[in-house]
C-alpha cells in the first residue's frame, strides 16, 4: 500500500465529527495552515461538508488558510500590553516588514500576527518570535531586534 500522509495525521482519531477541531489543529501543526486539499480530505473522512468545516475553521482565530512565513512574530495586544504601548510596537513591525497582521513578507521570512494575550501580562509589553517570548519590549527594542536579525543573516 502506498504511503499516505493523511492516514498518519489522523492516526488515533476515530472519525467522529466531534473530532473536527483537534484534527484541524493537527493538520495545521504539520503543514502550518489548512489547504483546500486537506480540508477536502478531512471532509471525506469525517463525512461532513467542506462548507461546514470552513464554517468552523474560520470561526476560530487559530486557523490559517495560507502558507505562513518562516518566522511568526506575534505581537501581544492584551490589556496590559495595550496600556504599555503594544499598538505602537505592532505599528513599527507593520511598517518595517511592510505587511499587515495575518500576512507574510514577500520573501516568506516573516509572518506577522496580533494575538489577544500571551499570558505574560506582568512583563508587558511582550511579543513572541516563533516560540520564544520577549518581555518588556519597546518600539526601540523592536527596531534593534530586527536589525540584529538582519545583521546575523548578512554575516
Amino acid at each position: 500500500m502506498p504511503f499516505d500522509p493523511f492516514a498518519e495525521i489522523v492516526r488515533g482519531f476515530e472519525g467522529e465529527p466531534a473530532e473536527l477541531i483537534p484534527i484541524l489543529q493537527r493538520v495545521q501543526a504539520i503543514y502550518g495552515y489548512l489547504s483546500p486539499e486537506s480540508v477536502g480530505r478531512i471532509s471525506r473522512w469525517l463525512r461532513i461538508s467542506e462548507n461546514e468545516i470552513f464554517g468552523v475553521a474560520t470561526f476560530f482565530a487559530q486557523f490559517r488558510f495560507s502558507q505562513p512565513g518562516e518566522h511568526v512574530i506575534k505581537v501581544c495586544l492584551g490589556t496590559a500590553c495595550h496600556v504599555k504601548g503594544g499598538e505602537q510596537i505592532l505599528d513599527v513591525l507593520k511598517r518595517r516588514l511592510d505587511i499587515q497582521p495575518g500576512e507574510s513578507t514577500a520573501d516568506g521570512r516573516y509572518q506577522l500576527e496580533r494575538v489577544a494575550c500571551l499570558g505574560c501580562c506582568a512583563l508587558a509589553p511582550v511579543l513572541a518570535i516563533d516560540e520564544k517570548v520577549y518581555a518588556d519590549t519597546s518600539v526601540l527594542r523592536v527596531h534593534q531586534m530586527l536589525e540584529e536579525r538582519e545583521n546575523r543573516e548578512d554575516a
Partner: peptide, 8 residues
C-alpha cells in the same frame, strides 16, 4: 479558556 486579555 482564560481569554480575558490581561489575566493569567
Amino acid at each position: 479558556d482564560e481569554g480575558d486579555p490581561g489575566a493569567f
